Amino acid sequence: MAQLIKLQDFVSRYESDMFKYPSQFIRLKQQRWRHLKEAYQDQRLMEPLQLQDETSLKDWGIEDDGGLTWKNRMKRWFQRKKRDKNEPEQTEPFQGSIDEVKEFFLTELFKYQLKWASSTLLQKSYGVNTYKRDEQLAYWLRVLPDNYLILYRPVFEIHHTRVEVDTIILGPSELYCISTLSGRKGSLYETDGKTYWLQDGQADEHHINPLQELEQMEKIVHSIIPKEQRKLHVKKIAYTDSGFIDASTERPGLSYVDVRTHESWMKRLQANSSPIKYNQLNTARLLLDHCYTQSVKRTEWDTHEDELIR
């Protein structure tokens, strides 16, 4: 599962230490799956699918109460007592398949990805719930492996100007600037227009030419990354996984990914088994340094489910 290092203008723990959290995410993910798998094999998974203890929070690094105030520790203790008292005892073991456990794991993983991308130990951002049902975001995270880092709808602050872009994906050796065409399934996009692309030949149904956004994204990346540190190949992608792009414009570094080429393109990305590299992390760090962030200070009375690791 790819790593969500920046979501819109939310505070992200990756911003505090880009060289620490990618490896920590991979370790915690592997640890969580191991615990779930062992619980399934030992019939400790219960209906509805969950663990009988708080392993989930511990696995995601959320149970560590180091640095909490005495008031928070006491509040946590009372919350646990109240929960244990109110919740009926689970007696039926989970009877589903290991594939159902995997699906539960991926759903849970997406939930904690959003937590990691919207809060730190000291700060948090509001509005992340709007992305819980974002199918495109969930898709990117699910289909790409751990060695890919994603900035989704990031807001860059360049020369006192804020610019929100679509998606940037950093692989071990390439940086993808992606502009997504979201239209009806089976739509045909004509690329002749300089300002707009017609959809299904209808003048009243058109999309802003994604090449404009892609060129802007490339300029932003190049303005942030010093020339001597540009170790990742920048590639621009006009993307749709449900329609067709009638490509008539060829430009260096530009690719069209549509329903015909989508599967093969994704397989090429998935086949890159190279570990996360220094240049990839350094590029991500530089990009995050120029992202705009809105957050507020966490209160000491935040619930224990929101207490994240440092």
Rank of each mutant, 00 (worst) to 15 (best):
E89C: 07
E89Q: 15
T91Y: 01
P93R: 07
P93W: 02
P93S: 10
Q95S: 15
G96W: 02
I98Q: 10
E100I: 08
V101P: 05
V101C: 08
K102A: 08
K102F: 09
E103S: 14
E103W: 02
F104Y: 15
T107L: 11
T107Q: 13
E108A: 09
L109Q: 07
L109D: 12
L109C: 09
F110P: 02
K111N: 11
K111S: 13
Y112C: 01
Q113W: 10
L114P: 04
L114E: 05
W116E: 12
T120I: 06
L121P: 00
L121C: 01
L122S: 13
Q123W: 09
Q123G: 00
Y126M: 08
G127N: 08
G127L: 09
V128P: 01
N129G: 11
K132S: 10
K132M: 08
D134S: 13
E135S: 10
E135M: 10
L137P: 03
A138D: 08
Y139A: 09
R142Y: 11
R142W: 03
V143G: 01
V143Y: 10
L144W: 06
N147W: 04
L149R: 01
R153W: 08
R153C: 05
V155G: 00
F156T: 03
E157G: 00
I158N: 01
H159L: 11
